[in-house]
Design a protein around this nucleic acid. Structure first.
Lengths: 244, 244
DNA sequence: TTGGTCATAGTGTGATCACATTTCTCTTGT
DNA sequence: ACAAGAGAAATGTGATCACACTATGACCAA
């Protein structure tokens, strides 16, 4: 287990929970927030030691994350934080572009005035954080805005799938955070989406979110170096092609 | 654990596998084929005994299925085969109607002549089975046709999500099998889809599949009694509303 | 007969251990 | 200096056990 994998957040108020739930939540949080870097190995005993529990809850939590595709499993059974390739990112985005607008469509009739107020506050929070380029805050406001809507869709299966996708996307964003100014290039349309939802125009709201996802995807595809882009193996293959 | 839950298929050629993989596959197979009925309880020790293994692999397999939402977990931690409600089925179908056409779209450029031949054979197999109303065979041909395409999409994440959906849908189909003639009411458009794919017309193929899913959903919604339709709890609530 | 109480069997959790396998490292030979 | 091999450390699997909790059913009182 690598050093970075050891960096778990200090225990929150998760005391009444079963140990394996606790382990699962900590690992999950570390994954979505980008604390874990792609390629990090997570061994059962290593996680157990870092969390101060025995191997059993660590194993359960790791296997659960693997079932959700939030981590990959080496042939040996060791868990590893997924390396998102360019193709993998494209696939992930394409799925998001189908499912998240669906959630928006279903949420539209259910949103209350209180929801709208909370959403408006999150749009402001996002804009404020944008001024100061605080990556974590921006991403958190972004996430909260969208998931407030997704939860309102009252579609537990759909919500679970979307969470899976975000879980998978987490490590990439952690890796991206190193590149300064990346977030500055991304526009969001949360304000327009909120307006459409207020008018109960489900279809335009869904279309706006779809555009937002697609635009952000295009931007990231052009601005970010991905795992596997021009790696040692890649260069080796290139030598083979040109030199043979 | 109920009697029906004990009915696992006799061991196939799964001998070299790890015990927990074996347990997982057997349970999964029992789930998708509808061997398990909605509401069946699956206790760790019960599954372990039925499979002739210790509790550990049974627990691992059950928790993995729970993570995939293929089974639900009672507050006590006991696994139970999900009861699909009318709303749940609608949600499941809506998600399928987004994701499966996406897979078709992505598969179109990758399908080979050999794939087309196999698909044509599966269409024939389906039609033949239809004549004799063999539910299991029809459903198998259906499934194989679609998943051959989905696999060709070369999108592992998407494929995993679609498998999750089918896993969740399995028990419902098992319960439906009791109602005679249900399958007769469903049309499929696999022939047309195959034609469109042969012409590399990705978009029409995707649209056809979407229609097929939506039509089948409408038919099932109208023809099938769902869990929770007019159940004891439902009637109790009705009493509360009218009598208070 | 009905209602509540209590004991017993069953359940999930989690710790610990033995075993086989994988993975790393250090040494050795070329 | 580099590659290969042997030994050691680490790892996943799975069995077993103790513990706490839940539900099931029997039993007794009203």
């Amino acid at each position: 287990m690598t050093k970075s994998a050891m960096a778990f957040l200090p225990s929150s108020e998760e005391n009444g929970l079963a140990l394996d739930e606790m382990a699962y939540r900590r690992l999950r949080r570390a994954l979505v927030t980008g604390t874990m870097l792609p390629g990090d190995r997570l061994s059962i005993r290593g996680v157990a030691a870092a969390l101060g529990v025995s191997a059993m809850p660590a194993r359960t939590a790791l296997r659960r994350l693997a079932a959700e595709q939030a981590v990959d499993l080496l042939p040996s059974g060791t868990a590893v934080v997924p390396r998102l390739t360019r193709a993998g990112f494209a696939e992930l985005s394409a799925i998001r572009a189908e499912l998240e607008p669906l959630a928006v469509r279903r949420a539209a009739p259910h949103l209350t005035e209180a929801d709208f107020a909370a959403l408006a506050a999150l749009v402001s929070a996002h804009d404020a954080a944008r001024e100061t380029s605080e990556a974590e805050i921006i991403q958190a406001a972004d996430r909260d805005f969208l998931f407030l809507i997704y939860r309102a869709a009252q579609a537990p299966l759909l919500l679970g799938l979307i969470e899976t996708l975000w879980l998978r996307r987490g490590p990439l964003f952690g890796a991206m955070r190193g590149q300064r100014g990346i977030l500055g290039g991304m526009r969001h349309r949360h304000g327009e989406i909120l307006e459409a939802l207020r008018a109960r125009d489900a279809e335009p709201a869904a279309a706006l979110l779809r555009s937002e996802i697609e635009e952000a995807t295009r931007f990231i595809q052009s601005a970010v170096r991905f795992e596997g882009d021009d790696t040692a193996a890649e260069r080796l293959a290139a030598i083979g092609r040109s030199g043979a």
